Deep mutational scan, measured.
Amino acid sequence: NQASVVANQLIPINTALTLVAMRSEVVTPVGIPAEDIPRLVSMQVNRAVPLGTTLMPDMVKGYA
């Protein structure tokens, strides 16, 4: 099972992602792969992401 990126805190809309804001977890459905965490740092989310939410490619500006 592949680990996905999960919000480690509430991430407000247009907030730049940080290492502290993300964690890796095996979840269903699978979201952005955990190995992409370094690439996600400083990218912005295009919606509010609640704690525990799996990050999907369409939630991160410039990711997809």
Rank of each mutant, 00 (worst) to 15 (best):
N1C: 10
N1F: 13
N1Q: 13
N1Y: 14
Q2S: 11
Q2G: 13
Q2H: 12
Q2L: 14
A3W: 11
A3K: 10
A3T: 08
V5A: 08
V5N: 00
V5H: 00
V5S: 00
V6D: 04
V6I: 10
V6Y: 00
A7F: 03
A7P: 03
Q9N: 08
Q9H: 13
Q9S: 08
Q9V: 11
L10S: 13
L10D: 15
I11V: 07
I11G: 04
I11P: 01
P12V: 06
P12T: 07
P12E: 11
P12Y: 06
P12S: 08
I13P: 12
I13R: 12
I13Y: 10
I13M: 12
I13N: 13
I13Q: 12
N14Y: 11
N14L: 08
N14P: 00
T15Q: 10
T15H: 13
T15W: 10
A16R: 12
A16F: 15
A16W: 11
A16Q: 14
L17M: 04
L17N: 01
L17P: 03
T18Q: 08
T18R: 09
T18C: 06
T18E: 09
T18Y: 06
T18V: 07
T18W: 05
L19V: 09
L19P: 07
L19C: 07
L19T: 07
L19Y: 11
L19F: 11
V20Y: 13
V20I: 14
A21E: 04
A21N: 15
M22I: 08
M22W: 00
M22R: 00
M22P: 02
R23W: 05
S24H: 07
S24N: 05
S24E: 08
S24R: 12
S24T: 10
S24V: 13
E25R: 10
E25I: 06
E25N: 07
V26P: 05
V26I: 13
V26H: 14
V27P: 00
V27E: 01
V27Q: 02
V27D: 02
T28R: 10
P29A: 03
P29F: 05
P29R: 02
P29D: 04
V30K: 14
V30C: 09
V30A: 14
V30T: 13
V30S: 12
G31E: 01
G31R: 01
G31Q: 00
I32Q: 02
P33E: 02
A34G: 08
A34V: 07
A34W: 06
E35C: 07
E35T: 14
D36N: 11
D36C: 10
I37Y: 03
I37G: 00
I37N: 00
I37E: 01
I37D: 02
P38M: 11
P38A: 09
R39F: 12
R39V: 10
L40M: 04
L40I: 11
L40P: 02
V41Q: 05
V41S: 02
V41L: 09
V41C: 06
V41F: 03
S42F: 08
S42E: 09
S42Q: 09
S42Y: 09
S42I: 04
M43A: 06
M43V: 04
Q44P: 07
V45S: 03
V45N: 01
V45L: 08
V45C: 05
V45W: 00
N46I: 12
N46G: 07
N46E: 08
N46R: 09
N46T: 14
N46M: 10
N46K: 10
R47P: 05
R47E: 09
A48S: 15
A48H: 14
A48C: 10
V49A: 03
V49R: 01
V49I: 15
V49H: 04
P50M: 12
P50V: 08
P50G: 11
P50F: 09
L51G: 12
T53H: 11
T54C: 05
T54G: 03
L55S: 03
L55K: 00
L55C: 04
M56K: 07
M56R: 08
M56Q: 13
M56L: 10
M56S: 06
P57A: 10
P57Y: 08
P57R: 08
P57C: 06
P57F: 06
P57D: 05
D58A: 13
D58P: 06
M59E: 02
M59W: 11
M59P: 01
V60Y: 01
V60E: 03
K61F: 11
K61T: 14
K61S: 10
K61H: 13
G62D: 12
G62R: 06
Y63W: 13
Y63Q: 03
Y63M: 04
Y63L: 05
A64T: 15
A64C: 11
A64G: 13
A64H: 14
